[in-house]
């Protein structure tokens, strides 16, 4: 395959990765890795490098829009980044001693059940209940909707923090963004509106991925010939995605897309675990 052909195929695939990644807060790795390894027969090391670049591009590209619109809860993101970055570092150290394929299968099952749980919620809940810790940490916020600004409180900070720590460890162990678990932690445990959860997850995944990217850069995983179409495609897709999300009235269908995408990620992970690829 020539450079031009490869570039065009990756460009198109990356556009959809960026689009779905920015809508769901998951990053776009779940499309990039199978596209590169299964379809284009690229070695897994290069694929992991390119996928990491796609996560950073999705995060920065869409976060720029979400932060400007005031949907992202910056303080919450910052606070939880302590857990995700520390967790990721611990996970990367643990990965040296752990048979990761069992963890991949287990985590895949956790993901599927959490995707189903997130679908069951009929109505967008916003809790006005403010916990003591949320007030101390100044985490309660507001976000713009079609019906005007909605105030929301944040509950169960400690539970959310530890789920984030777990999400970080998983991402360090398996080398994935684990955005899914971040969204579940904020939406399900801390009772934050879904739109705020996905955009804040988007905001956070770039930071953890940047730390990994420096390490991968030194190991030679990040090849410019593959990263080039990934960056351009993902950014265009993320911009389209953030426009759609900002202008959409309901988050019901985002939940559906989220559940479908998370299930796809989970199946991938279980498959990789069983075949011993993780």
């Amino acid at each position: 395959m020539s450079v031009i052909e490869l570039t065009i195929i990756i460009l198109i695939g990356s556009y959809f990765a960026g689009l779905l990644g920015s809508l769901t807060g998951l990053g776009g790795g779940f499309i990039i890795i199978p596209l590169l390894t299964l379809v284009l027969r690229v070695d897994i090391h290069y694929a992991i490098g390119a996928s990491l670049i796609s996560v950073i591009a999705t995060s920065s590209g869409s976060a720029a829009a979400y932060v400007k619109e005031g949907i992202t809860n910056m303080r919450l993101g910052m606070f939880l980044e302590i857990a995700t970055t520390a967790g990721a570092m611990a996970g990367a150290i643990l990965a040296i001693y752990t048979p990761t394929h069992y963890i991949a299968i287990l985590f895949g099952l956790i993901l599927i059940s959490s995707a189903l749980m997130s679908l069951q919620k009929k109505k967008e809940q916003t809790t006005i209940h403010q916990s003591y810790l949320a007030q101390k940490l100044n985490l309660n916020g507001s976000y713009p909707t079609a019906q005007g600004t909605v105030e929301y409180g944040v509950t169960n900070i400690i539970g959310g923090f530890f789920t984030m720590l777990f999400a970080g460890v998983i991402s360090g162990l398996l080398g994935i963004g684990s955005g899914a678990l971040k969204v579940v932690a904020m939406d399900g445990i801390m009772k934050i509106p879904f739109k705020v959860s996905t955009t804040t997850s988007n905001f956070m995944i770039g930071v953890t991925a940047a730390a990994s990217a420096v390490v991968y850069l030194q190991r030679g995983y990040i090849d410019p010939g593959l990263s080039m179409p990934v960056v351009i495609g993902v950014l265009l897709g993320a911009m389209t995605g953030s426009k759609i999300l900002v202008n959409s009235g309901s988050s019901k269908w985002i939940r559906v897309i989220f559940a479908v995408v998370v299930s796809a990620v989970a199946v991938q992970m279980i498959y990789n675990g069983i075949t011993g690829k993780i």
Binding site: I53, I56, S60, V207, P224
Partner: peptide
């Protein structure tokens, strides 16, 4: 040059923090 651009992209979230 592409790699230089990628390094800028990787630096962006860190500069943001």
């Amino acid at each position: 040059i592409i790699q230089g651009g990628i390094i800028l992209l990787i630096a962006t979230p860190v500069i943001r923090v």
